[in-house]
Design a binder for these strands. Structure first.
Lengths: 190, 190
DNA sequence: TTTATCATGTAAATTGTTACATGATTTA
DNA sequence: TAAATCATGTAACAATTTACATGATAAA
């Protein structure tokens, strides 16, 4: 159960459910996302299990916020998750499944359209990652290596994001070129 | 709902639920997986919806197989899915979430262990992908571009897998080197 | 004779998404 | 005055995983 552990990671500092959602949108969206309707009940459950504590905090601009923070037990649970080693082999990448069956479009032009749309999405994504990097560079003087541990490991995932997305764009370009070359050749058998 | 469409892709040729599971293990495991307990009920549902037809086929080595094949309606549904454009932004990569919180181990050596274990997994994965490529190369004379459409698009996903996994290994190496460098430096603030 | 493979499924639990419900404050 | 943001949640549904259940054949 990754979400629980991810939230335990975030709750090193006190956060509300709303905060957690924002953190997903801002920093983790490249590898995980969760809806408020999943976050709120899970926080309550984690409270019941003694993994977090909660306290109410009045807000001047909205309703009372419920602030959670992990307990020693919660931290131990997170460390156990990390110590168990990498959680791998469960990734699902829908767009690759689509590419796998792209021949069913029975039209090279439409396959190219698909790959171009995918490329555009990746380029857009790269832009946001590069903006994030730029922001870090200007805020943290020792970026990327001489920064606090917490930021350093976060930067590692940003670095992976940048590498992955650049590899993806290159792949799209190669794929489009290859489909074009095939399309320009004489008629092939299906 | 991607699984339904993926199965419609597979059911271009007649297959049993058992066959479909094998296909996941053999060819799609890099970007999707599904259990038999999900496959069987979904096939029945798709039959009810008129997306596939089924017929029983006696087997000499086991129980009667139920063979499914997509209908014209099923194929249309698949084409609609592909035509809708890339399904993106829903990927969940648990190991990146772990790396993000690796500072909670509060021990560089254990973080390095983690990254090394991740690297080993990736190397193993690369080996299987390279074996797959080798197999194709020796079976299909025109590999990778002068092969039937269906195989060509499958090869595109293999190519992406190889690129991605190689980028991952490079990233692991860089990450390990960076963690080591930091560990050897003087004490830093958390 | 035990284990693996073939082949079907159901049941229960967990995880995740979409829709619904409320109400205050701030900005356009 | 309408829309966005703040902030909480519940309900219903969909997707996925894990465990259970059966029984034949083939290989070690």
């Amino acid at each position: 159960m990754s979400l629980k552990h991810i939230m335990l990671g975030m709750l090193r500092e006190p956060h509300s459910g709303y905060d957690i959602k924002k953190e997903f949108e801002k920093s983790l969206r490249n590898f995980w996302r969760a809806e408020l309707s999943q976050i709120y009940p899970l926080l309550q459950k984690m409270d019941d299990e003694g993994l977090v504590t909660s306290k109410d905090s009045a807000s001047d601009i909205g309703p009372t916020r419920r602030i959670y923070k992990r307990t020693a037990k919660g931290r131990k649970k997170l460390v156990a998750w990390l110590s168990d080693g990498p959680v791998v082999g469960t990734e699902k990448i829908a767009y690759l499944a689509q590419v796998y069956f792209l021949s069913d479009l029975e039209d090279d032009a439409r396959a190219i359209d698909y790959m171009q749309e995918l490329r555009e999405y990746m380029v857009e994504w790269l832009r946001t990652l590069e903006a994030t990097e730029q922001h870090w560079k200007s805020c943290e003087p020792g970026y990327p290596d001489d920064i606090p541990d917490k930021d350093f490991y976060a930067q590692l995932t940003l670095d992976m994001g940048l590498r992955k997305i650049r590899a993806n764009i290159e792949w799209c370009d190669h794929a489009i070129a290859r489909i074009r070359r095939r399309a320009n050749q004489s008629v092939r058998s299906a």
